[in-house]
Every structure is written in C-alpha cells, then in structure tokens.
Design a protein around this nucleic acid. Sequence first.
DNA 1: TTGTATGCGTTATCAT
DNA 2: ATGATAACGCATACAA
Lengths: 354, 354
Amino acid sequence: MRKRASKATDDVAAQPRRLRKATMKDVANLAGVSLATVSRTLSAAAEVSPRLSRRVQAAAQSLDYAVNINARGLRGKTSGLVVVLLPDIANPFFSVLLQGIEEQARSHEMAVLIGDTGVDRAIAETYWRLIEGQRADGMILLNGFLPFPPGKRAVADYPIVVVSERIAGVDAPIVGIDNVAAGFDAVSYLARLGHRRVAHICGPADNVLTHERRSGYLKAVEAHDLERWPEAIQPGEFSIRAGRLATARLLAASPRPTAVFAANDEIAIGAIMEAKANGLRVPEDLSVVGFDDIEMSQICDPPLTTIYQPRREMGRKALETLARLVESPGRRPPDALLDHKLVVRDSATPPAPR
Amino acid sequence: MRKRASKATDDVAAQPRRLRKATMKDVANLAGVSLATVSRTLSAAAEVSPRLSRRVQAAAQSLDYAVNINARGLRGKTSGLVVVLLPDIANPFFSVLLQGIEEQARSHEMAVLIGDTGVDRAIAETYWRLIEGQRADGMILLNGFLPFPPGKRAVADYPIVVVSERIAGVDAPIVGIDNVAAGFDAVSYLARLGHRRVAHICGPADNVLTHERRSGYLKAVEAHDLERWPEAIQPGEFSIRAGRLATARLLAASPRPTAVFAANDEIAIGAIMEAKANGLRVPEDLSVVGFDDIEMSQICDPPLTTIYQPRREMGRKALETLARLVESPGRRPPDALLDHKLVVRDSATPPAPR
DNA sequence: TTGTATGCGTTATCAT
DNA sequence: ATGATAACGCATACAA
C-alpha cells in the first residue's frame, strides 16, 4: 500500500502542494489529549475541563483546524445544510427574502444552498437528488411546486417550509402574508380615493397568488360596489411586458378605467409605461397600485403606490420555522401570516374630473 | 451495543418515522452484486458489464437510492461543491451573474453554495471556515476581497477565481471586462455626440472598479481634449442616493456639465432623478451614461444609455475556469477578458445649443 | 471527566 | 469484469 506522500517527493509538474488539512487527530496529538476530547470540546457536546478545553482550543487555533463537515454529516444526524428552491434569483422579491434566510441561517450555524430552478421541474428534481444525497436538513420552497413528483414522497417525511406561495395539496407550514386581504386593501384604497372604475391585471393563470389577489380585488369590488365590465379583469404574467400588453387592452376598451390594481409591481410598472406611451398621465389619467414593493418601485416615475411585503422578515421566519421542524420532526409548526402594509407613493390619486 | 431499531418499535411520540434512506449496500443486495459494482456503476468510475449495470440501475431506481454526498466527499477527492462569495445578492448585477454560474455548475454536476457577505469580512471568514470544513472544491469571489486574512493562507493553495473586481495582490485567475476601455468608450461616445463638458461620478474610493473606470474617463478626456474643471470628478458610491448627491454638487457648480458618465447604473439613475428634480430635462439638458446595464436601466425614464457587461457569460466563464483549476491545480488558467458593449438608449443625445 | 473503540456510506486498491 | 476490504474524519456508546 502506498502511503500518502509523507515527505516532499517533488512532483514533476509545478503543482503547488495542496495543503494537508489538519484533522482532529492532529489537534489531539498537539494538545496531548484524546481524539474524543477534541471532538467534545469543539462541538460542545459534553463537559470538558477548562484546562483541557483551553489546550485543545489553542492547538486547533495554531493548526488552523476546521471540522470536516463531510465526516460530521456522515457520522452525525444533521448536516447543517438547508436548501432553498426558487424560480428566479434575479427577481428582487426573492433576493431580499434570501437575505433574511441567510441571516437567520448564520445564527443557527447553518449553510444555505440555493437552487435556482426556473420553472423547470427537471432542474428542481436535480436539486432534490442533491438534497437527498447531501442529507440536507430541510428545504424552503419559494417556487410554488414540489421538487419531486407528488405522492412519490410524503411531505411529512421531510422538513419542508413553504414561503409566500401556498402549494396545493401540500401540508407543509407556510410563511407569508394574507394575499386576499392585501388585494382587498389595495382596491379599497382606490375606492376611497373616489375611483369607481378599477381594473385588475392578474398574474399567471395557474398561480395561487394570482388567485388570491384576484379574490381580494373581487371582494373589494363587491364591498364598495365598484363598476364591473367585461374587460375589467385582464389575464397576465408577473412581468413588465405582460403589464404593458394587458394595459394596452384595458385602454382600448371604452370607457377606460381610471385606476388599475396590478397583481405585482412589475406588472404595475408595465402599466405605467404603457399608459405614458399612450399619452396618458399617471396618476392623473390613470392611477396604478402594485404589489410587493420591490426596489424598482421607488425609482420608477411616478414612484409606485404598492403593497409592502416584509420580505426579509419572511425569510427569517421561514428559516426559523424550518429549524424548529428539524429539531422536532413531530410537531408541525404553525403557519406564519405576517403583516402587509400599503405604501402610499405617487402613482395613485383621486381620479381627475372628466 | 444497540442495533438501530430494526423492527417497528413504535415510538411513543407521534413522530413520523424518518425514512431510512437506501444505501449502496441495499442496492447491492437487491441487485445481487457486490457493493463495489454498485459504486462503479453509479459513479461511472469503471467499466461494468451491461447486464449487471442494468440490474444495478433497476435496483437503485426501485429503492429510490441517492448517493450520500457526505460519504463521497469524505472518501473521495472532490466534493462537488463550489462556494460563491458576493457582497449583495439583492444587487441585480450579481444575481444574473449567479445564474450563469449555476447554469454551468449544473452541467458539471456541481452544487453552488452562495455566501452573501455584505462588506463584512467577519461574515466572509465564517463562510471560509465552512468552505474548509465542507471541503468545497473551490471558490468564486465577487466581492473584491479575500475571505481570510492576507498571508494567512496562500491563494495558490486553493482554487480561487475572481470575477469582475480584481483583488490587489491576489494572483488568482480573473474573469471580467476591460473597465478602462469601457470607461473610455462611454466618454468617447459622449464626446462624439458633441459634449465638451463631461463630468464623472465615481464609485467608492477604495474600489478597483472605481479606479479603472475613472482611468478610462481620464484617458478619454485627454484623447478628445474635453474640458477640465475642479468639480468634474465627483466621489460617490454605487448607489442611487450617492448618484443624487453627487449630481446635486455637479449642478451647483457653474457652468454645469452637459453630460455625466456614471461609474454604474445606480449612480446614473440617481443622476437622472436629481436632474429631473432640479427641473432639468434628460437628455436635453443633461446627458447621462451609466455602466452595467442592469434591468432597471431599461425601465427608468428615459431608458439609460450604458455599458453592457455580459454578466451571465461572465458567470459561466468563471465556473468554467474554476472547474479547470480544480481539475489541474497546477495550471493557472488565463484571465478571461470578455467583451463589453455600449448600449445606446435615450439618456444621451447631442447637447442642446445654449 | 477522559480515553478507547466502533461505525457512518462511499471510493479506491488489491486480488481474483 | 467483479468481489473483498481498507481507509476517509468524526461522534458517540461504553469502559475506566
């Protein structure tokens, strides 16, 4: 058997020697204690006398020791790894949420593995395999679907937390806001400003958020007895482009609405752009209210009145919930419904007198 | 010694039984082959006869087997994990880059661990410990500094690729664009439009990109013999706020510039906002050119003329470079200088006649 | 409190 | 081509 090069057997190639990393054994030798004591000291798993503890700490320090997580994961119960699946990391809504998750993960000494799955379930499944293999402790889902065929595995078998977008038929704890109430609030605000003819541009048809926010719209239309007309509710997608298209259709109908409630901010921004392109003034000729309060909404012209979601807070809460779930797999933590807020900026005012 | 519960010794608590995951041993038993054959088949490490291979595949499938990456990482040479350190995941510049990294990582069957370090070196060091422990294969740095005290470890000891922002004194391969040339191009464009009095708003003082882009500006001022005046070069930061502040200072001086080259798009957007707030028209009264071509730049009013960086491509290239470095630690891959491009939109036109 | 010994699931080396 | 088996580095049950 060939021992791992113990002396400098200089390779022919000019390969820099990869540092041999210190192991617990090395630390134990240097500190003059047993391997078990090192383990106990460094993972704080059991009481170690201050004397030895100090010696171990010092030895670890001087050897620049770092625990091998592979070994720990192999031996131990948890891996300290959390997987987050999301549809688009470039979407600012998710990225701030992610920061919340990471912040909280750090305080739990967990690492976050982010999977950008797009809308592609095959990619999600790839990550899922990874999760299984990595023995990740759990999973946070931001993308509205499970990364494995439904029924193949039970959600109950795995610590999963769902954020924002409730997944049909999945009983995992969910962290988010009350989208129906938020939609209701947005439209009620427009009604209180004096708008009677308020349109709604939806997200993608199969999306839960689309459904919930539209429900909020409908409830408000009902409650304030607003006008109803065939084109009032426009199908769409969560994109600027879709917002423009839908708004174009809205403006083609006559009479045109005096206000629009968009299912998210990108749609709203598209609506503003299209209105301007058609020579209308925002908010004088068309008021617009969005949803999410992404960064861009402060920058666009006019700054967008919109529903604020506590994204960072949601991220934190999600990881917290997952951590609890990991700790005691039996207890299903309660859903967390956080507070939304209407942020009033300049894109909605009372309608101009005709 | 107590064997791991082999029969259903129903727990008292209503904890759902955590599925025992299938191991290679299980697969081997089911397929009626040796453990070694399973390993060879599944990791394609050596030739296996089609007959056995099929049997193994089938067994693995039916047991829903997933390799335990901890064990693989412990035994094997590489972990298949790449760490990316960046200052702000919510910054769209980085998030698209990240998508490029992830895409390419998937094709290499590597996982990407993202560390959002902010500007906090302590957090970066936390991630570094993690890396060492996790035995990540390598690291991609987007944040302009090393995650460990300089000199403590040699960069040569670890596969590291630096993206966009060259780190002083670090000899790692770098992927990016030629920022000096790009700055030069931006200002030359303004000069060719007829501008003579062009200001520059910088990024943070200690940043390499700031320095390089300013050099490009200075070269262009030289080459086209543009006006120089004391307030021409304004200190700043990569933020909208800083852009507004710097622009306010610029407009206070007399005569004011007819054009501004901003060190990035957020500054440029701030410049546009401030100019408008002061009753100026953009681009008629003040032309603005940015840098990066973030998504917002298409949306703002007017849409921003800016330098495009092939972010996704940069991400891909970075991972590719890292993969090569991991494969052969000896060969230092060459730096990759990708092409930038001036994207002409509406925020810069010839100066209005006075 | 501390040390000894074992096994976690995989890959790689050695025989066959 | 296939099988047996020794590490990999750590945590823990058990002995002292």
